[in-house]
Design a protein around this nucleic acid. Structure first.
Lengths: 226, 226
DNA sequence: TTTTAATTTTAGATTTGTCTAAATTTATTT
DNA sequence: AAATAAATTTAGACAAATCTAAAATTAAAA
């Protein structure tokens, strides 16, 4: 049940890429870990042997249930430590990432859970990211900007951050307004622009500038109990 | 200025043995680290290359100024984390050693110093050991081991030298913990065991082995300010 | 002072995680 | 569909930290 720091880093990175991009590739993982694709392949084999990963060579890979659990625990630790550093040790929210990268590998479960209690069972870390509870349950972030949204995830527009007339006009023109259901079809890394699809409409392209100001939340008609 | 966890562990162990035994041998170091003499020799060579150690093969070795500084920093971190765990996270004083063994290798100096401030610049850790300040200064403790204590002198337990779980459990069982007031009632020269009396308790017998590891200081009612 | 014993070191192997360069497989173009 | 490009994997190497077994050195005993 205890994995090396490097393994934990790989699991965590895979988890995050899985969330953001839906699918993870060897190259993307290598880039995200600032390592080389060959090294990633080596590690994938080890993670597969430990049944943390479902992996077929040349085909692709994803976390197993075990792997996801391990990844979420690392994220939990990272975010709790970040919050501790900011809230208790008066670090700035932009200074804590590096340190938390080390602290997240301290193994004691008891420690994490007590830290959680010490901080008052917080829901989010200093960057607004949700902190998984001791069972690994995530309350997904309620609102994110469009620019941080993973591909192909249907969401509902829940807010517009900067409401200049020009911006609202542009959105209006593209049939995007509060409550609009949409999803991202493609991301263009060149300028970080997005191809966005609104139901019953042809896809439109949105600049990174605009995307940053459109806030969205999960489209969950189920949870709207009444 | 940053050393591997293993190197830090070696430096720390050398420092402690230097204090206790004056001189350190390859075998003693190996025993203390639960590793093999050959492995120690390998490490000594590396530490010498980094000028953390003065070392001549077959002759002996000791920490350089650099090496001592590094060792003291690790000890500082260890003891601050132990105190944090006990004081803030409500761990028992006998549960924190293992966890602190991991935490002591977190590198950020800023972190240590802020932790120090957060804890109110404490002088001693939960076992009564002095915490070096940010300059690495130590205030040596004025204490002796129980085995060197004269008969019928009331003292207070101020530290436990060797903190194995087994040993702490034994002490716990005999109601001896940090701060406990006790005195020696009888010494048995046959095996150097001692009969010890704790207030409000029947006397118990303590082996020489254990007595060597229990540190006591004069009972100072002065510190009970009122 | 030899001989024996204990300590320490070397030699060579192993594990983990990483790398480069070359080969293989899959994807994309023409 | 053949050719080219991109992605992925293998092969072989290396550094760190450890080990076992054997050799070298120092210490202790006869």
């Amino acid at each position: 049940m205890k994995y090396s720091a490097s393994k934990e880093n790989h699991l965590k990175a895979i988890f995050h890429l899985q969330q953001e991009q839906g699918i993870v590739t060897t190259n993307a993982l290598a880039a995200s870990l600032r390592t080389k694709p060959a090294s990633v392949t080596d590690m994938l084999k080890k993670l597969k042997e430990q049944k943390l990963l479902i992996y077929e060579r040349y085909k692709g890979f994803k976390l197993s249930t075990e792997g996801r659990k391990a990844a979420v625990l690392v994220i939990r630790k990272h975010r709790l430590w970040e919050l501790f550093l900011v809230k208790k040790l008066q670090f700035g929210w932009d200074e804590v990432h590096e340190i938390a990268e080390e602290l997240e590998h301290i193994s004691s479960r008891e420690l994490v859970d007590r830290l959680d209690a010490f901080l008052g069972f917080p829901e989010t870390d200093p960057h607004g990211d949700p902190i998984p509870d001791s069972q690994g349950r995530f309350q997904p972030r309620k609102q994110v900007c469009l620019s941080e949204l993973p591909l192909n995830k249907v969401v509902q527009v829940s807010g517009i951050a900067s409401q200049t007339t020009e911006m609202l006009e542009l959105l209006q023109y593209n049939h995007i307004r509060l409550g609009t259901r949409l999803e991202i079809r493609k991301k263009f890394p060149f300028d970080d622009s997005l191809e966005v699809k609104v139901r019953n409409r042809p896809p439109v392209t949105i600049s990174a500038r605009v995307a940053k100001n459109v806030l969205v939340k999960d489209d969950e008609p189920l949870s709207e109990k009444r």
